[in-house]
Write a protein that binds this DNA or RNA. Structure first.
Length: 582
RNA sequence: GCGCCAGUAGCUCAGCUGGAUAGAGUACCUGACUACGAAUCAGGCGGCCGGAGGUUCGAAUCCUUCCUGGCGCGCCA
């Protein structure tokens, strides 16, 4: 189950050993930096099974030329029984061809490891906290949150699969002014529930119908005692009830998407526990917070009501930000940033590494929070790797026509609408067919199409086709068997080679924190299977089920089962259910 | 004005942190169903990787500088 069992890392080790031998023999200087040495499949399969750039990377520091170095390496590598040929190509690549048995063994490895195929120990149990969604508890989720939710959840799944100890966390912003606004909006619905005609919801409050049930619940609970009452009498009560209700809505949406967080961290509780004060004290002690006056904002928008005020400022400029940032407002309350800073300190206490998934509209605040974590990780006495992944906007379309989204009017498209219409798996997979830091379009008409235009369908179809083939085989009294895999040749070996890349795809995707690569890999593998399957249309001898040749059929069925396994493992990372039939 | 993201085939997008002749799908053209599901497959057409400089054995990828589009930018959240 360890990464040592993958073909690519096995050969990386062999090349490493060959280099060691050359060092011992005195033909290569010791202490060369080998981190840029790669072992990869060549882009062009006709070049061989594996390629390494070792000779090119090391030639210069070794003060020799690439070809001379490559010749020595080839000599060592040719001695390996698994290598059928080793050639120097182009500017100094070494191309290796491997014994076919190596690839057949990989099919067995998939079978043996099953759901564990592709898992790796790369993460080494590193505790990674992934914070995602964190939508404000002022209403149900909408599309803007959805992509971040899916991307974050898939990333968490990917990191788990690659051996990290992942915590999925949601930061509940239940302390700012927006929850007071929520409470006031709920108060209106409360009066409405008691029979009052409240008319149009005033500007600045939340108009959505989703507040009507909470208004009713408050009416049931309190009767009319707060109808004419001063805000100070009911605000806290209404706020708590509304936030709780909104979180229930959001959790329901998340459940629809198959997302479950381990921790819902409350900003209000964080503040009540005095965490921001602790952070401030530490930062002041290290001269990272000081009392100062902000410069008037630059730019074209003239600051009409700008007044210079002294505020506690965090020295984010010391860490690359454009200006220092206030952690408290002039009314003495914490700014969002001040609380968020303390929140990240809290997360860092229980994690080795932090990842935030944010919407692109928060891009402007990335620098300051990175600065804060950089400063605070010193306080923890360890460097906390911290990454903010920005997820760009999604534009909703139907048949190429943009769908209007208006939160103001309250009739925006909800997650519930979307999942109901196209299904959880389609939403998740589609959101992952584009790298997150580029904008994407989501066309309702397209994602439900059962065609190649729709990648979800395409991958699912490959999996379903495998299952259907197995059912058909059972009817013919044929079963998958690994008794004689030497029947697997040609196109079958090609497909194995492709599937065999799954473990290294997982690792490189995990390293880059990019779950979408898994989605693309699955499309390629599905395509390979469809191609393979279809070869039987032209030539019945190439079908998976060849009734007159049971040994061949058994081997091909075995291979198909393992391809299905890899597809399932990949879909599993993305949180998409593999289907048995369409 | 500043920051972040993007710019790759007509269109939608990949490109595995610097590798070999830049890849898929779609559209268009040609071909394949007495079927383990043709919801698919095979072949063809299609490129100054936004422009210009630079770094090195080697650049779509890194640096500089422009251009275009998106998103942001005060004690909001």
């Amino acid at each position: 189950m360890s990464d040592k069992h993958t073909i690519y890392s096995a050969f990386a080790a062999k090349i490493d050993a060959a280099l060691d031998a050359m060092v011992t023999a005195g033909t290569l200087p010791a202490d060369l930096d080998r981190k840029n040495v790669s072992v990869e499949p060549p882009r062009d399969p006709s070049h061989g099974d594996l390629a390494t750039n070792a000779a090119m990377v090391l030639a210069k520091p070794a003060k020799t030329n690439p070809r001379a170095l490559a010749e020595q390496l080839v000599e060592h590598l040719s001695a390996d029984s698994a290598v059928t040929s080793a050639e120097i190509a182009g500017p100094g690549f070494i191309n290796l061809r491997l014994d076919e048995q190596i690839w057949r063994d990989e099919v067995l490895a998939i079978a043996t490891l099953g759901e564990g195929y592709g898992r790796s120990a790369m993460g080494a149990g590193t505790r990674v906290n992934v914070e995602y969604v964190s939508a404000n508890p002022t209403g149900p989720m909408h599309m803007g949150h959805c992509r971040g939710a899916v991307v974050g959840d898939a990333l968490a799944g990917l990191l788990e699969f690659s051996g990290h100890d992942v915590t999925r966390e949601y930061y509940v912003n239940d302390a700012g002014g927006q929850v007071d606004t929520l409470a006031r909006s709920a108060h209106i619905r409360y009066r409405e529930a008691l029979g009052e005609d409240v008319g149009e919801i005033p500007e600045g409050l939340y108009p959505g119908d989703y507040l009507k049930p909470i208004g009713q619940a408050l009416a049931d609970k309190f009767g009319d005692q707060y109808v004419g009452a001063d805000e100070s009498e009911w605000l806290i009560e209404f706020r708590g009830a509304s936030v709780a209700a909104m979180m229930e809505l959001i959790k329901a949406d998340l459940t629809l998407l198959g997302i479950h967080h381990d921790i819902f961290a409350s900003e209000a509780e964080l503040q009540a526990a005095g965490k921001p004060e602790v952070a401030e004290a530490w930062l002041r002690a290290h001269d990272l917070v000081y009392d100062g006056v902000l410069e008037a904002p630059k730019g074209k928008a003239p600051p009409e009501d700008w007044e210079p005020v002294e505020l506690p400022l965090f020295r984010s400029t010391k860490f690359g930000d454009d200006q220092d940032r206030p952690i408290k407002k002039s009314d003495g309350k914490w700014t969002y940033f001040g609380a968020d800073l303390a929140y990240h300190m809290q997360k860092a206490e229980a994690a080795d590494e932090l990842i935030d998934i944010w919407g692109a509209d928060h891009a402007g605040t990335v620098k300051r929070i990175k600065a804060a974590v950089a400063a605070l990780s010193e306080g923890q006495g360890k460097a906390i790797p911290f990454d903010v992944k920005l997820v760009q906007m999604v534009q909703l379309l139907r048949g190429g026509e943009p769908l209007k989204m208006s939160k103001r009017s309250g009739n925006f498209i909800t997650i519930q609408d979307m999942v109901k219409e196209v299904g959880k798996d389609v939403v998740r997979f589609t959101m992952l067919t584009r790298k997150p830091d580029a904008q994407m379009e989501f066309d309702f008409a397209k994602v439900v199409e059962t065609s190649k235009d729709n990648p979800v369908f395409y991958v699912q179809y490959a999996h379903a086709r495998i299952q259907s083939t197995l059912r058909k085989a059972a009817d013919e009294d044929l079963a998958p068997s690994a008794d004689d895999l030497s029947h697997l040749t040609g196109q079958e070996l090609d497909m194995i080679k492709q599937a065999a890349q799954f473990p290294r795809m997982v690792e490189s995707a995990a390293r880059a924190r990019e779950a979408h690569r898994i989605a693309f890999f699955l499309q390629d593998l599905a395509s390979a299977f469809h191609t393979y399957w279809n070869a039987g249309n032209d030539d019945p001898e190439k079908r998976i089920i060849v009734p007159q040749n049971r040994a061949v059929s058994a081997a091909r069925l075995f291979l198909s089962v393992q391809i299905g396994q890899v597809l399932r493992n990949g879909l599993g990372i993305l949180g998409v259910q593999a289907v048995e039939e369409l």
